[in-house]
């Protein structure tokens, strides 16, 4: 696998097929892109969401290769930092806003009676947030004295139906990931480089397992429970390049939650000579923007880099996000152009 990646004719963009392009001439500084399921007039379709610091736009497919902007929410008090994907939720867009770190989380929604509006879900010094299936949102926030980890059950009208406090670990939680197939389990990574596991129903902190010192500041993206083991997809934004392994982009690590022991299962490294990455994972595929301005895609189960999108005529790629429901990869340029690729 490594030999294949080292060949000059290594992965190209063949496994990514350009489906369509959308361009917002008013968006000069995109901060995020994503997709949302939208139900209207009796059917459900996937729509694209683009975010700049002060506006979030909803895009509707008009024809197979053509998108039109449906609506723009203007958010003027705090800059938008990221779109928070809400799996299997319809007609709700969740965004995180703040200066250097997330200060508030808002829902952007449309209702028959109120038209388009937005509502505040959470405020504080928010360190990490994740959207889960069944309209649930989990976040960690910190005061000088303590850390709060909370799950909010969102209502269809953009409010909060219920709140559940989860037991916080001593270390700050830096990322969350849902566990595929286990509705009540949630994993997180901490500033002390551990993986923690919660029971979402009871709020119990079940286990803290150290990742190891070789890969500091690991970020969890997704987890799968199988055969009594917990397989966690981690990215390593700050790992140093090593002669034996190259630069790790993603690793799949198997944890035994009973014993707390772990072992590396699969290793996906950056294409040779590349550096930097900001990653996203969907199912078993990983994607990241490299500092060279290219986008790289990996099959995480095989450890293969399967595609590289070089910087195009419009310049460096700035964003790479997987669309919901296996609809492909969204890649965004700094000039506001977004390409949708089938993968």
């Amino acid at each position: 696998d490594v030999a294949e990646q080292l060949t000059p004719d290594g992965p190209r963009e063949e496994s990514l097929q350009l489906v369509s392009e959308l361009k917002d001439p008013w968006c000069s500084c995109p901060v995020d892109v994503g997709t949302v399921w939208w139900a209207a007039a009796g059917h459900r379709e996937l729509r694209v969401v683009t975010a700049s610091e002060s506006a979030v736009s909803l895009w509707q497919p008009l024809a197979p290769d053509c998108w039109g902007k449906v609506y723009t929410w203007h958010l003027t008090e705090l800059p938008v930092i990221q779109i928070v994907p809400l799996p299997d939720t319809c007609n709700l867009v969740c965004v995180a806003l703040g200066e250097l770190e997330i200060g508030e989380i808002r829902l952007l929604l449309y209702s028959e009676t109120d038209s388009f509006k937005h509502s505040l879900v959470k405020t504080g010094n928010i360190k990490a947030v994740v959207g889960l299936k069944d309209q649930r949102l989990v976040s960690s926030s910190r005061t000088m004295q303590e850390q709060q980890v909370e799950m909010v059950l969102l209502s269809e009208t953009g409010g909060s139906k219920d709140r559940q406090t989860l037991m916080p670990p001593e270390e700050t939680v830096t990322a969350f990931a849902e566990v595929e197939g286990m509705r009540e389990a949630l994993v997180g990574t901490t500033a002390g480089n551990s993986v923690v596991v919660w029971n979402l129903k009871t709020g119990q902190l079940l286990r803290k397992m150290h990742i190891g010192y070789s890969y500091p500041a690991s970020i969890c993206h997704r987890a799968y429970s199988d055969s009594g083991l917990l397989f966690v997809v981690l990215s390593h934004p700050h790992a140093k390049e090593s002669e034996s392994c190259g630069s790790p982009a993603f690793r799949v690590v198997a944890f035994n939650p009973r014993s707390g022991r772990s072992t590396g299962v699969m290793f996906s490294c950056l294409p040779p000579g590349r550096a930097g990455r900001r990653g996203d994972v969907w199912d078993t595929a990983g994607a990241a923007v490299l500092t060279s301005g290219a986008v790289a895609v990996w099959d995480l189960l095989r450890g293969h880099c399967t595609a590289v999108l070089p910087p195009g005529p419009a310049g460096h790629w700035a964003l790479a996000r997987w669309a919901a429901g296996g609809a492909g990869l969204l890649a965004g340029h700094r000039d506001g152009t977004v390409h949708l690729y089938r993968y």
């Binding site: 009540e184 389990a185 029971n199 079940l206 055969s227 035994n256 009973r258 014993s259 022991r261 072992t263």
Partner: peptide, 23 residues
């Protein structure tokens, strides 16, 4: 990975840890 590397594996780890962890 073998059981000797990772220690005893339980298919019901989530239920067992939930029963053992402080409420």
């Amino acid at each position: 990975c073998s059981e000797s590397d990772l220690g005893p594996i339980s298919l019901n780890w989530f239920e067992e840890l939930s029963a053992e962890a402080p409420p």
